[in-house]
Amino acid sequence: MAKQSKLLIFILTIGVFGIINTEMGVIGILPSLADHFEVSVSKAGLLVSLFALVVAVSGPTMPLLFSRINRKKVMLLVLGTFVLANIISIYTTNFTVALIARVIPALFHPIYCSLAFSVAADSVSKEEAPKAVSKVFIGVSAGMVIGVPIASFIASTTSLQMAMVFFAVVNAIAFIATLLFVPSMPVKERLSYGVQLSVLKKIITWQSIIAVIFLNSAIFGVYSYFAEYLKTVTTMSTNAITIMLIVFGGANMIGNIVAGRLLTKNAGKTVVTFPFILGAIYVLFFLFGPFSAPMLFITFIWGILAGVGANINQYWIMSSAPKAPDFANGLFLSSCNIGTTIGTAIGGLFISGIGTQYVVLVGFLSLIVSFITIALRNYMYSPSKQLSI
């Protein structure tokens, strides 16, 4: 059973990597895509922003709609959709067709990711669930961090089409592995849509959603402008900035492993202390921003915390609605995307208003809001209050 569980989690990690890689990998080849489709870079950016927007909108709804169907069949449907969409992207020369080939898989994106987290958690004991989920998160981090430079490297050394082939191949590998090695997973308890939606009637769910929105805003509101910060404040070269981004990404993957252990050992303490630790890093970020050596160390620790934060976000919403796991994971994905959007917008306002070095303020403000909602949930739903989740 242990070997089967490890293989299942490994396949889920590859699948998540393939899906996130499809979403984020185009960032590294946007200029090439703009040239290929003969559009401006800003218009080509729709291939990224429209994908993210669709994921945010479909996050709560699509996992809910597919929550009563055999999980293996649903995963094969999603992976198959991604493979076909990527194949279309390889051959099309029409930008509108390329956009459609991005929007359709984006609709299915939350289904696979929410299922991956749920299935990983269900494959082990309740106590070991955070560790299992953290391993799947490695696929998320790898998709975000490794996918971009790999796609860019392939496009620059071979061709744009070969970079697209890379996206298709990874998803095809996940599809074949799922088909051959993942057992049939019929839904044992088919919850009605009404029962799943009823979690939205509970205050704890909304407290958790708000906390996750602003925890993600705290991280990505700053990270979205990290390269600009390193360029203007730390005055690093392009190559040095690339190294820093790789350091952040590698540390992020380490953070997923750390998070699994922390949440398994003491989830409550981990969640409560996280805003303070991240806030302390942002203080160092602000004070030592102009200095390259300290920023290397700060970036490494920040990357670990970002990995831990992603796991906390998933755990916090899942723990607020444990009876509707697929729907809860959909809410998690939407909340994270909304948080990224809000944080990026506010961070941009700080940069344009008072300067790039003050982008950390979006981190501080977001952490304050998230901590208040975390503390409020803990107070209202502490054992002494005897309130049921």
Rank of each mutant, 00 (worst) to 15 (best):
T232F: 05
F276S: 11
A44V: 05
S42D: 03
G80W: 07
L64E: 12
G250V: 07
V169W: 05
S192Q: 01
G353P: 11
Q207E: 14
V145C: 06
Q161Y: 03
N252D: 05
I246W: 00
S192N: 02
Y381D: 01
L361R: 00
A85Q: 02
I281H: 02
K72I: 14
F181T: 05
F371Y: 12
P31C: 10
L160K: 01
A174T: 08
S89D: 05
V272R: 09
I173Q: 03
G139L: 01
S198H: 09
Q207S: 07
I69S: 11
Y358W: 12
N21D: 14
V136N: 00
L331Q: 13
L200D: 07
Y315D: 08
S217L: 11
Y91D: 05
S114Y: 05
L333A: 15
F274S: 09
M24H: 12
W302Y: 14
L160V: 05
P130C: 11
L47D: 06
P110S: 13
P294E: 11
P130W: 04
I69D: 09
L50W: 11
V119D: 03
M1K: 07
E189F: 06
P290R: 01
V148R: 10
K73I: 14
N313Q: 13
G268W: 00
L33S: 07
A151Y: 03
G250W: 01
S67F: 10
Q196K: 03
E38A: 15
V359A: 05
G18A: 12
L230R: 01
F108A: 01
I69L: 12
M318W: 03
G80E: 08
A324G: 09
L262N: 09
N252Y: 02
L278C: 08
Y193I: 14
S134N: 02
A280W: 10
S217N: 09
A101M: 02
S320N: 06
V16G: 08
V369N: 06
S42M: 00
A172W: 04
G309M: 10
I87T: 04
I203Q: 08
L115P: 07
G249R: 00
L65V: 14
I243R: 00
G339K: 04
Q207T: 08
V272S: 06
G45R: 00
V16M: 10
M75Y: 11
